[in-house]
Design a protein around this nucleic acid. Structure first.
Length: 260
DNA sequence: ATGTCCTGCAGAGCAGGA
């Protein structure tokens, strides 16, 4: 079973690269973030043509939006609103083997890492805090994937020193993410298969002239699993090449393969 | 400090978000 997570930055605008990726890698399940489309306008057809008949989406106008597309049946349909502001940032399902799959898009948090000056930063911290409370109450095998918008380790960014004050890598965010990870005893699958100090990045800004040459990446996208599920994981891949595709997302897909 | 990219509105370039 191969499960992929990808912040696609508009699923309609990037439908061609999504199709290319699905044809090349043939994951069983694809979790998307930033679909940027209301549910009625979701481009179901391409997914259906490739066998992704089981779809649970949670979209909204313009921003955010998450989706789970699957070749295996998925049941349930949770949509948590940890900010209580009706933003579409989570969708959760159950797989046939009983494993829960939770797909989340954590707020980016604005530019200034100070909640007094920048309310969005406070909202991001509050969002992660509420996820932590939720995580404490979870039971059973679970996979948590998505764009967490936080790069926790020094090796998760191109320069630890230069990003200490940059939203996504500040100590206050890293601490908050650490509390979330501890609350669920979550295993970071990316780092389980590619331990630090190996460089592991999933996002490169659009603003660089040449993303590969400057290579100022960050690991904002994650796959976590409870211990029982993590024991079944056999491989984890970051598809860095996708950043160089035509009309790319600024994020690349990440994939974990499980033994079942 | 700057850079770019997407959506929606409107019917062209902006605002807003990332």
């Amino acid at each position: 079973m191969k499960i992929v997570s990808w912040n696609i930055n508009s699923v309609r605008f990037r439908i061609a690269i999504v199709e290319q990726f699905l044809r090349e890698q043939a994951p069983d399940i694809l979790c998307l973030q930033e679909t940027k489309v209301i549910d009625d306008d979701f481009p179901f057809e391409m997914f259906r043509s490739l066998g992704y008949d089981h779809v649970v989406i949670h979209g909204q106008r313009m921003h955010h939006g998450v989706a789970i597309l699957s070749r295996v049946p998925i049941t349930l349909d949770d949509r948590f609103d940890w900010q209580a502001n009706r933003e579409a940032r989570h969708v959760g399902v159950a797989l046939p083997n009983g494993v829960r799959l939770e797909n989340v898009y954590v707020p980016a948090g604005g530019d200034v890492p100070d909640r007094e000056v920048n309310p969005k930063f406070g909202q991001k911290l509050d969002f992660v805090e509420r996820m932590t409370r939720w995580s404490e109450g979870l039971s059973g095998p679970t996979i948590l994937v998505g764009d967490f918008n936080i790069a926790p380790l020094p090796e998760d960014v191109w320069s630890h020193k230069q990003l200490l004050d940059v939203v996504s890598h500040t100590p206050i965010e890293v601490d908050a993410l650490g509390r979330l990870q501890a609350a669920g005893d979550w295993v970071d699958l990316g780092r389980r298969f590619h331990p630090a100090p190996k460089r592991l990045h999933t996002w490169w800004s659009y603003r660089a002239k040449d993303w590969a040459a400057s290579d100022r990446g960050r690991r904002l996208d994650h796959m976590w699993a409870t211990q029982d599920v993590a024991a079944q994981a056999v491989a984890h891949t970051v598809f860095e090449d996708c950043r160089g595709w035509l009309k790319p997302s600024d994020h690349v897909p990440i994939m974990t393969e499980f033994a079942w």
